[in-house]
Design a protein around this nucleic acid. Structure first.
Length: 499
RNA sequence: GCUCCGGUAGUAUAGCCCGGCCAAGUAUUCCGGCCUUUCGAGCCGGAGACGCGGGUUCAAAUCCCGCCCGGAGCACCA
């Protein structure tokens, strides 16, 4: 039960007392950058390890040099993603370093008669297995299997001509688990592995490498998506044959986020085809994109903890993420005036000079304030206001320029509005219910472009004092939303975070 | 089609194992009010949910059965 104000925590892990120390792992294929979909596995594994003073392992599963080619570059980007998220692994393994280990285990299974080398055509094997019947290779003697294994290694068999299969129950209700494949041949002359080149031509499939590694690395709690539920069934045969105990397993449901694709292949294709500007395109839900938009890693963590390890498929709303982020960002973000689609506002009848001091943050006056000097020329002064505010203004209406004075609109034009000084006191505006709008002295703004999450941009001018804000800082453009400072050059570039 | 997993308000989550204190809690969202020289934050109030149908029981979101809906797997991918 959680009291108000208490942070939500994860439910306890099952059977922790059975193990000396909790060990979890995150096991990505380094074939893409990480995204919000990966966050669930990462945060759950990391937080549980921390919660029980355990270890969190990063394991790169790069055993497919052909279809899901990994790359050194992605391995590095993944490490950086994890670092940014604040989920730094205690240990790291790479499966392409461990091929010999898989071979040893394969040979043991072959010798013990728990596996065989199958040279059947996939279609004919499939037919047999659907009928719960063994294929011709299944009853081969261990010696013959070992000979065939040798022929897989030495090149006698070509790509696709032989696989090693694990014996299961041919009558298993789920045909998908019957005698599943554990190793296949890949012509690494044609498809060299990015790390080990063409050193190996027999490569383990997911269930073999993963199953063996989870045991060897002492994983106590496997936390992964429920699409792996049948893989667990398959891997349990391995554990039975080796005499190992299967770890605790938690299979969480599929996670989607409204309006964004969490498909690696779509992200990969989109970036490659130039549909996106890069891995950090604000339309993407990659960590890189979220980071660029000013989403704090802690917000992602909190959201994932809030969601927890449930098995239901869910579609989270961006608002769920934004709410956490806003809570963290609001107190730290200083406020600035940003005028977009600017419209000129000429105010007549300004008979004296004004100085406006506006705090950088309304709740923290100690942070100081920005200062604007209004020096009218012949009783007139020209401001810039946002187009959206200009549209609302009608002749005769009173509006207040925040922290300055009230004006009465005289007439409105396409790109300029003429008004006259009305009064200075704030309470005049308050008692009339006059709108409060932000403003900039004309000629005093810095050009600024905001990149929005939908790929569009908003351009306008930001107040002069903004020039000293460092890159990467998240600030709030008043009455517009939070943004993260991306670059400062001829133009200031910021990325929209959320409202 | 076969196998498996799910289904609490718009979204997410608590409760379900060990039926009653749940005419269902929390966060967010939306609406209203207060406060505030931001349409931000904060505070107060309101709206909004147990997929459907049976059964067991004094009592069911919780147990049983059937149905419906959603998802995943059925690769020499991970």
């Amino acid at each position: 039960m959680r009291e108000k104000g208490w942070e939500k925590t994860l439910p306890p892990l099952p059977n922790v007392e059975k193990y000396g120390r909790v060990v979890t792992r995150f096991a990505p294929n380094p074939d893409c950058v990480l995204h919000l979909g990966s966050a669930r596995a990462i945060v759950l594994c990391y937080e549980y390890a921390r919660m029980y003073n355990g270890r969190f392992i990063l394991r790169f599963e790069d055993t497919d040099p052909r279809l899901k080619r990994s790359s050194l570059q992605f391995m590095d980007m993944i490490r950086k993603d994890l670092e940014w998220l604040g989920c730094i692994p205690d240990e790291e393994y790479i499966q392409s370093d461990r091929i010999e280990i898989y071979y040893e285990h394969a040979e043991k299974l072959l010798r013990d008669g728990y596996a065989y080398i199958c040279t059947c055509k996939p279609e004919s094997f499939h037919r047999r297995v659907m009928a719960c019947e063994p294929c011709e290779c299944r009853n081969l003697a261990p010696e013959e299997n070992l000979r065939r294994w040798e022929r897989m290694q030495d090149g006698t068999y070509g790509e696709g001509e032989a696989v090693m299969r694990i014996k299961t129950d041919l009558s298993h209700p789920n045909p998908a688990v019957r005698d599943w494949p554990a190793f296949r041949i890949i012509d690494t002359k044609k498809h060299p592995h990015p790390r080990v080149g063409s050193k190996y031509r027999v490569w383990p499939l997911y269930n073999f490498a993963c199953g063996v590694d989870d045991h060897l690395m002492g994983i106590t709690h496997i936390i992964r998506g429920k699409e792996h539920l049948t893989n667990q069934e398959r891997q349990k045969y391995l554990y039975k044959y080796f005499g190992w105990d299967y770890p605790e397993a938690i299979h969480y449901g599929r996670l989607k986020i409204e309006g964004a694709s969490l498909s690696k292949s779509k992200i990969l294709r989109g970036v490659r085809d130039g549909l996106y500007t890069g891995w950090d395109d604000p339309r993407l839900a990659t960590f890189l994109a979220l980071k660029r938009r000013g989403i704090l890693p802690e917000a992602i963590k909190r959201l994932m903890i809030d969601i927890g390890p449930g098995a239901a498929d869910i579609t989270i709303s961006w608002d769920n993420l934004y709410a956490y982020n806003r809570k963290m960002v609001d107190p730290i973000a200083n406020r600035y005036f940003f005028v977009w689609s600017p419209v000129r506002l000429l105010v007549k009848g300004v008979e004296k000079e004004f100085t406006a001091r506006i705090p950088f943050h309304p709740d923290y006056p100690e942070r100081g304030s920005r200062v604007f000097h209004i020096r009218p020329v012949e009783g007139s002064f020209t401001f810039l206001i946002s187009g959206r505010d200009a549209e609302q203004m009608k002749a005769g209406s009173i509006v207040r320029l925040i922290e300055l004075f009230n004006v009465r609109v005289e007439h409105t034009g396409r790109d300029s509005i003429v008004a006259s000084f009305y009064s200075e006191p704030y309470y005049d505006a308050k008692k009339m219910g006059a709108p409060l709008i932000h403003w900039l002295p004309e000629g005093d703004g810095l050009p600024c472009e905001v990149f929005m999450p939908d790929g569009s941009t908003v351009s306008g001018l930001v107040e002069r004092s903004f020039g000293s804000v460092p890159i990467d800082r998240v600030v709030q453009f008043e009455r517009f939303g939070f943004v993260r400072v991306d670059s400062v050059g001829e133009k200031i570039i910021v990325f929209f975070t959320h409202r």
